[in-house]
């Protein structure tokens, strides 16, 4: 009886909330409290890691070495860093990635910036951790084309690797698991540095210009970008069909039975976004202005799976310009990365 009363009260409460909510203006139209909004974008104090792969200097150094070692590919000429080039904000600047045998692949290379915080990896989210993700591109015949059964023997044949693995993962040896864990440990150190936007969020009013500040308001208000591009990474890792043309089903190929994620791709981070053109999962938008235009018109193609969050925005040219000005404040002056000396 008690549970019935509680259940009824909960349902009644929900109904009241619904009615009150219907009477109020939609949350997105409410004049934002600027300081409260800025607080949602504060950088975190530490980098997360799984319990069974705590970072150490040896693990990160080994991961960096593996990341730059082309011997992890079947051809011996392609490293993780070939596509995830630190000089290009850990991507390649191409419309679509180029894989084994110079084959052009269906999707653009995603940056690995700030992936330590990512909930799901790959454009379609088919891996749930960096450790799970790391071996995928190595083994893919289209990407690095290195069958996993041959990977460990290959690295064991390089004498200097044995000591590096032993220091990083004592007693565990060279295995697919330790290779993945080392690469993941390194990737967790790839964090975008403080950008002008961060300084503004923390109180330096001179850090960004007036147009960008107005763009931040548009970003969180009329343009509704923050619905998905939220938090300090400017992404919630969610999956949406945003109306990009093409027949790549994205997350729909991973969750085949779910219509709502057909043609959906992961919301990317917007950190350093103005250094990472072209845009979208297939590089189909050449410039930031083009990407904003896609959202402004509510997508370039209408399908049953089109996200309910994608609607025409009716931005003025001034508002579109403000959005782009804001996006440019997310770029940090990241330190150059030294290519490691590879084991022989």
């Amino acid at each position: 009886m008690q549970s019935r009363t509680r259940s009824g009260a909960l349902v009644l409460g929900a109904c009241v909330a619904l009615l009150v909510g219907a009477a109020a203006k939609p949350a997105l139209d409410v004049e934002p409290d600027l300081e409260a909004l800025k607080a949602k974008y504060r950088r975190p104090a530490s980098v997360p890691h799984p319990d069974d792969n705590a970072p150490s200097e040896a693990r990160v150094r080994l991961g960096l070495t593996l990341f730059f070692d082309p011997r992890l590919s079947g051809s011996g000429v392609m490293a993780c860093a070939t596509c995830h080039n630190p000089g290009l904000s850990w991507a390649d600047g191409l419309e679509r990635a180029v894989g084994h045998g110079m084959k052009t692949l269906p999707r653009r290379t995603p940056t690995i910036l700030n992936v330590a915080w990512a909930e799901a990896l790959f454009w379609d989210g088919r891996a749930s951790s960096l450790e799970e993700q790391a071996l995928g591109p190595i083994a893919s015949p289209d990407e690095m084309n290195q069958p996993l059964e041959g990977l460990v023997p290959k690295l064991r044949a390089i004498p200097e690797y044995a000591a590096q693995f032993e220091e990083a993962y004592p007693g565990e040896g060279i295995s697919n698991a330790t290779i993945a864990k080392a690469i993941a440990s390194f990737e967790r150190t790839v964090v975008s540095a403080r950008a002008p936007f961060d300084a503004w969020v923390e109180g330096d009013e001179s850090a960004i210009g007036a147009e960008a500040k107005q763009g931040f308001v548009v970003f969180n208000g009329k343009a509704r970008c923050s619905t998905c591009h939220s938090g300090w990474r400017l992404t919630d890792d969610s999956f949406h069909d945003i109306g990009v043309r093409g027949d790549d089903r994205g997350r729909g190929a991973v969750l085949e039975e779910i219509e709502g994620v057909q043609f959906a791709f992961k919301t990317p981070t917007l950190r350093n976004v103005d250094r990472r053109a072209p845009y979208m999962h297939d590089g189909s938008e050449k410039a930031l202005e083009d990407a904003v235009a896609l959202y402004d018109r509510g997508g370039r193609v209408r399908r049953p799976s089109l996200s309910r969050e994608i609607v025409p925005l009716e931005l003025t040219p001034q508002e579109s310009g403000q959005l782009v000005a804001f996006l440019r404040t997310l770029t940090s002056d990241d330190a150059p990365v030294a290519i490691p000396r590879l084991p022989r």
Binding site: S3, S7, V11, L12, L19
Partner: peptide, 25 residues
Amino acid sequence: SIRRVAALAVVLLSAASRGAAEDQV
């Protein structure tokens, strides 16, 4: 719309009153 919300409220209330005692929200 208010009408749709009200209709939903009625459905939910009737669900509660008909004895959906074990519902958890």
